[in-house]
Simulated scan of single mutants.
Amino acid sequence: MTLHRIQLALLVCVMLQIGSAFFSTQAHAQYKVSTSEIGVGIGGANYKGELAPEYRFLNNQPALTVFYRRDLTNTFTARGGIMLSHRIADDNTIGDDVQDLPLPDYRQAELRLSLAEVSLVMEYNFLDYYDLSQKVRISPYFFAGFAGLIYNKKLTTDNPSLPSLDKPFDTDLTVSVPFGVGIKYALSKHWNLGLEFGTRILFNDNMDFLSEADGKHVANPYDKDWYYYNGISLSYTFYRANCPPPYRRQPGILD
């Protein structure tokens, strides 16, 4: 419950910071140089739900991301990305204390889950990362935004008294709210290294198929599913000079 409150508080803080960007008086056109980046990342995707009620780093499964980032001001950057992952979650291999509780022992369930996420987020940079005059360019950042998620799932059970838990592969679409923290470090003028941890809030409890079955309580109906991504990235920066508007002669008194 404490982690949940911290995550929600962080989300509110980030959204307030992003909202302030719309009232900024500094226009992007004032910069002499604008930047955009393309990059890839590798890391782990983590699911938190009925089969894994608590976040554990060791439950991460491999994930791959590709993204495009563009600076809007010296503080804000916009980023669009795609994240792909596949994982298997099992009541017998959760890896924490909950695996010995009666409900997981009763379910004996296994989940196969593949997901693809398309996201658009805003990043708030604490330092002026895009100032090329700095000898060392580094900045921590917050990010928040929206994402569309398509996921494919299959649920099986070893408990013969719960035949309704055996469900074939099914594909669903939903939306989520990604937010989190990261840090950027410039390896050179063009190459950047990044490290990020992010949480995704879902608005349903259906990522793992577990809700109610045959009138028997097999899940917590009051808790939503979550998923996470944490990883490292490498990106390449493109620079573009912002030329001033062309000079136009103003008409004089004698014109």
Rank of each mutant, 00 (worst) to 15 (best):
L64N: 01
G145L: 01
E50D: 14
D100E: 15
T77K: 04
T65V: 11
L132G: 02
L132P: 01
A78N: 06
E37K: 13
L132I: 03
S36V: 07
L64Q: 02
D96S: 13
V136P: 01
V118R: 06
Y47C: 01
L84N: 07
V118A: 12
E50S: 07
Q99M: 13
A109M: 12
T75K: 09
G80H: 10
S114C: 04
S36D: 00
V121W: 03
F57K: 10
G49F: 00
Y68F: 15
D91T: 07
G43Y: 05
L101Q: 14
G39V: 03
P62W: 06
Y130S: 00
L120K: 09
A52W: 01
D97G: 15
L113T: 00
M122V: 05
R137F: 06
N125R: 06
R56S: 12
D90I: 04
A45G: 15
Y129M: 09
Y130A: 06
G39P: 03
V136A: 09
V136S: 08
I82E: 04
L111W: 07
Q108L: 09
T35L: 04
F126P: 00
S119L: 04
G44Y: 04
V118M: 14
L120R: 09
S114Y: 06
N60P: 02
N60E: 11
L64Y: 12
V40Q: 14
N59C: 05
R107Q: 09
A52P: 00
G95S: 12
F67I: 02
D71R: 07
S133C: 05
N60A: 08
N60V: 00
I38V: 12
A147M: 08
E117R: 12
P104G: 09
F126G: 06
L120A: 11
D105K: 15
G41K: 09
P102F: 07
N59K: 10
F146R: 13
